[in-house]
């Protein structure tokens, strides 16, 4: 099968700086123009197309980028990623309705809360054998939901209502039905996340994660402080999830425990693996497809999740490394060619 990832990387590596800037800008422009394709074949029946672009599509992309740091880069199986999303959202919900703080002021608090809970969960869990991490994170995800479901302060099953929208930025108003404004804001957050991950990936942290994923014992014996970098991966992943949560709450204006079920964790995990674990472009593609597909095939109405499940099975069997897998290709050997 042709490897699109290698094709893309090939073009990228053969381009010079200016060409690269143009390619990148082209992709950003394409992503930014998506809200204008509402009338075309991209349109989603029943659900509002632009709202689908915000959630699930863009939100899934952001969360998949975060989860990819944990699973794709470091090989830690986290089945409770939704917990950080929920913590961000509830931070926004609580502070937004009870204090005078606005979304942009709460954003760093929500991220900090998610990172903090990442440490609380990560420090004991990451000392255990890898297999157990899956169940402990899964349990953590459920615990966060159950706590929200049972605490009066968090509104129990009714959740939190009337969460404020973000205040205007540069005169741009965020009203609850102006989906494209939210979409473009999310796009900026996503670009920031991509920048962060790419920056880390080529430096020490990226190599540490990569070595841990491939052979943790060897990594530790060659001087990689594995535990520290595993906690960092976990916490950075949490921070992205927290940011997504804050923004999500501020968009939907209403959150309830039902928005944060295990199914979300599983879906985000599916985005990462389906797209191509470890390769950020694959992960983004996976999230776009898996976020968008269920709404696009709404004409199947009741059967859409069933079809979705089938797609997962078939795709994984055909392309177990995902649509755009991680680096497999090597640069030609200039010295050998001589």
């Amino acid at each position: 099968m042709i490897n699109l990832r290698d094709k893309g990387a090939d073009i990228w590596e053969r381009s010079n700086r200016i060409e690269r800037t143009f390619i990148a800008l082209g992709f950003i422009a394409l992503a930014a123009s998506l809200p204008f394709f509402g009338g075309t074949f991209l349109n989603t029946p029943i659900a509002d197309y632009e709202s689908v672009l915000v959630y699930p599509v863009a939100m899934f992309v952001l969360m998949a980028i975060g989860l990819n740091i944990v699973i794709g880069k470091s090989g830690l199986l986290d089945l409770g990623y939704v917990a950080f999303f929920a913590i961000g959202a509830y931070t926004m919900g609580l502070l937004g309705t009870r204090t005078g703080l606005n979304t942009w002021e709460i954003l760093p608090i929500g991220i900090a809360m998610a990172m903090f809970s990442g440490v609380i969960l990560g420090v004991p869990a990451l000392k255990l054998r890898g297999d157990y991490l899956a169940i402990i994170t899964l349990g953590f995800g459920e615990i966060v939901r159950i706590v929200a479901l049972n605490l009066e302060t968090l509104g129990r099953s009714g959740g939190i209502l009337n969460i404020p929208t973000p205040p205007p930025v540069f005169g741009i108003e965020y009203s609850f039905d102006s989906h494209r404004i939210y979409y473009w804001t999310l796009l900026i957050i996503i670009l920031l996340a991509i920048w962060m991950v790419r920056r880390l990936a080529v430096r020490r942290a990226g190599r540490a994660w990569e070595s841990i994923r491939q052979d943790e014992d060897a990594a530790e014996l060659l001087g990689v402080p594995t535990f520290k970098y595993k906690v960092w991966a976990f916490v950075l992943g949490a921070s992205v999830g927290g940011a997504a949560g804050v923004f999500y709450a501020s968009k939907t204006l209403f959150i309830a425990p039902d928005n944060f079920t295990l199914q979300i964790s599983i879906l985000i995990l599916a985005c990462v693996v389906f797209g191509g674990m470890g390769n950020i472009w694959g992960v983004i593609l996976g999230a776009v497809i898996l976020g968008y597909l269920p709404d696009r095939i709404r004409f199947l109405s009741d059967a859409r999740l069933l079809v979705f499940g089938l797609v997962l099975v078939i795709m994984m069997n055909l392309r177990p490394d995902g649509l755009l897998p991680r680096k497999k290709r090597e640069k030609p050997l200039p010295k050998e060619a001589k």
């Binding site: 699973i71 199986l77 599983i266 995990l269 599916a270 693996v273 389906f274 674990m277 009741d302 059967a303 999740l305 069933l306 979705f308 499940g309 089938l310 797609v311 997962l312 099975v313 994984m316 069997n317 177990p320 490394d321």
Partner: peptide, 30 residues
Amino acid sequence: RRLRRMNSGILAPLISAIGVSMVLAEAVRI
């Protein structure tokens, strides 16, 4: 089976099993 033969690690079979779970649960739900 197919994924096992390809030696594709633990995540790909996990996702494909998740897919099967969704199919079964959804079929019964419908």
